[in-house]
């Protein structure tokens, strides 16, 4: 395994992971690593296994074999909420917000693992719980400012436009102060303006927060612009990993995408 350019220790090592569903090999022996300050992109046609990798990382799926090390800990077999507490946050391909709650409550839920008081303090709402709520609310308000969500703060998220919901979901993940951020198709279904906004936020996150990220995305423009390295997948396998220009021109990658277009036409 070669080290990522200019990066020291890897925050994530994904090693020979295999996952299948009733005969479908969703992930078929994939290995990669993500550097401590890297924006790593995963591309590939529909059904290639990209989202499955995220689900393995966040503990939703348990792979048949392989090893996943995140920040020095083995993730496989760990429950999702434990993994979240270690500092892994994500967004979902199909928005998974808490639809009836307001933007603020969704973001506060993003901070859940940092808010430390017990059920008895919650009942009493004296000092401890109240102070914690106020302090974390201040952090959440910073995220509201950062993502320009001021006007939507008190709205239930189900009433918000799609592009804004995507942004709230990004905010919920950021609220966790993660050590690694996973973005599953952050600009899918967005119009040009919304896409540009989102790309700007992702750049800002990288520059201001210095946060390593894995981004799954079909929009090649965004991927080429933002990613440090790219892994291309097809049928559960990694077919090329490397710098954007290399991967884009890799013959197997071109074949995978052309094959998909031929199949579609």
């Amino acid at each position: 395994m070669t080290a990522a350019p200019s990066d020291d220790a890897a925050i994530l090592e994904f090693d020979d992971v295999r996952l299948s569903f009733a005969g479908v090999k969703a992930i078929d022996g994939v290995s990669f690593h993500v550097g401590a300050r890297e924006l790593f992109a995963i591309i590939g046609p529909n059904g290639a296994g990209k989202t499955s990798i995220f689900n393995v990382l966040s503990g939703v799926y348990r792979p048949r074999r392989g090893r996943v090390r995140f920040d020095g800990r083995d993730l496989i077999g760990m429950r999702p909420h434990r993994i979240a507490a270690l500092g892994l946050a994500r967004t979902f391909q199909n928005i998974e917000l808490f639809a009836n709650l307001t933007v603020l409550d969704n973001l506060m839920l993003g901070r859940h693992t940092h808010i430390r008081y017990g059920a008895l303090s919650a009942f009493a709402w004296l000092g401890r719980a109240r102070n914690a709520e106020l302090a974390h609310r201040a952090v959440v308000e910073d995220i509201v400012d950062f993502l320009e969500l001021e006007q939507w703060r008190e709205h239930p998220v189900r009433l918000l436009p799609y592009g804004i919901q995507k942004r709230v979901e990004l905010g919920r993940a950021l609220a966790a102060d993660p050590k690694l951020l996973l973005l599953d198709e952050p600009v899918a279904g967005m119009n040009l303006e919304e896409t540009e906004d989102m790309a700007r936020f992702i750049l800002d996150i990288r520059d201001e927060l210095d946060l390593p990220m894995i981004m799954v995305e079909h929009d090649m423009g965004i991927v080429m612009d933002l990613a440090d390295r790219i892994m291309a997948m097809d049928f559960g396998r990694a077919i090329a990993t490397g710098a954007p220009a290399e991967v884009q021109n890799h013959p197997d990658v071109i074949r995978a995408y052309l094959g998909e277009e031929e199949a579609a036409s």
Binding site: S58, G59, V60, R79, P80, H81, A84, A85, A89, R90, F92, E96, L97, F98, A99, N100, L101, L109, G110, H112, T113, R172, A173, A176
Partner: peptide, 12 residues
Amino acid sequence: DRDVAASVIGVS
């Protein structure tokens, strides 16, 4: 509202 998402953001 969404139990899978809840666990993924850290709710046991």
